[in-house]
Design a protein around this nucleic acid. Sequence first.
DNA 1: CGGCTTATTGACATACGTCAACTATTGTGG
DNA 2: CCACAATAGTTGACGTATGTCAATAAGCCG
Lengths: 228, 228
Amino acid sequence: MKDQDLQLLAGNSVLEHLPDNARQYLLKEALELDMPSGTTLFRQGEDARFLHLVLEGRVALVGSSDSKDETVVEFFHDGDVFIMPAVILELPYLMSARTVEDSRILLIPAARFRECMEQEPALSLAASHELARHWRLLIRQVKDLKLRSAPQRLGSYLLSLSDTDGDRAEIELPEQRGMLARRLGMTPENLSRAFSRLQSSGVKSRGRQIELSDIPTLRKFCAYDDLT
Amino acid sequence: MKDQDLQLLAGNSVLEHLPDNARQYLLKEALELDMPSGTTLFRQGEDARFLHLVLEGRVALVGSSDSKDETVVEFFHDGDVFIMPAVILELPYLMSARTVEDSRILLIPAARFRECMEQEPALSLAASHELARHWRLLIRQVKDLKLRSAPQRLGSYLLSLSDTDGDRAEIELPEQRGMLARRLGMTPENLSRAFSRLQSSGVKSRGRQIELSDIPTLRKFCAYDDLT
DNA sequence: CGGCTTATTGACATACGTCAACTATTGTGG
DNA sequence: CCACAATAGTTGACGTATGTCAATAAGCCG
């Protein structure tokens, strides 16, 4: 494994508090995979065999009902661990995972991760924190879907990317628009229209580059409170 | 505390693997509250001061945007612990909590719960499992909201209540219809209409009593797969 | 520069929300 | 136990947000 990867792991929110030898043991049988964009890592319904960690690139968790309709539940990127709940509970994945960029993924065998959680209090504690964070992200998403319109959801998303106290910001969309639309619970067509609607709140978009020129107005439009 | 309460706690998924003395320590400063239906336990935005446990009754987690619109994210009943993520992370609540029946609630001081999590590996392990389960419930809800129509969501909910392999079932709605509508992401009016639409799939409702006379057809209509 | 994918725009369809009137259910005090 | 008020649920008419389909335009890559 590369040096920079080991560094990434050492700084990872789940693994950082593990004693070195425990971390080595955990990663002993881990696999590193190189996958082009668009690769399916696993499918909804399969048994959880690995805990996944993104070394590099970008992955989407994709939910499907009758395999015709699909939605993106969340994106993960460098340093993110995903699909821990299925691994912990030894249950089938509730979603599929697909790379949306060329990516390198670390696969940690599920049984070994569970074993380490039982041996190492530091790991189960860190896992609780990580799961708690993820739970809160999902709560935000549920509230978004139930309480806000499509343009408001887009605006909130842009604000969450900007992460500034100032009145203006330049940001870059990390996702393709089609994928972003699915993540936000709308169609690509409607995402376009949502962008138009936000123009009057100071949102200008040229390709991936987005300019927010009036953040206070945008916050108001989105009913964006930081904790929500 | 009543005997039956201690029994409930002993069988609780988070507390059951705790050694007796640790559980006693955890609960030492816990408060037991009796609240009529409709009481607000805490409000979105407040700091998380207590881990909550339902001894008896029923509680709704209510999310609001501009305090005008509200939605129900989840219900909890006897034996359920809720709001653990905010307690673990020492962050403000993302939602308010309101009793929807006369209820008795146990309040466990947040600091003490965190302390016990650090001392007792059994607790952090149990917490991970609980959080993982809750995460998966939310994932289901997100997929529901994004991929299914209102009648399908209602149908899926009814199927999840019926919990049978047979072709028919009688069930009783545990919630008031208005609350249920908000939990399912629709208006009360639309819930009524959703019930009508499900008649052709063998759903008959008289008050709280629901009869599912053709479960296979209903499953099909809802695109209901057990793992989703 | 072409050819592919991805994004936009417009016309149209539909599911869902809103409002208002009505009906049923529940709870309370005489 | 009834009568009545209050609350909760239903129904219809209507408006609106969002999805769908098709055509066009814009990026992206060989």
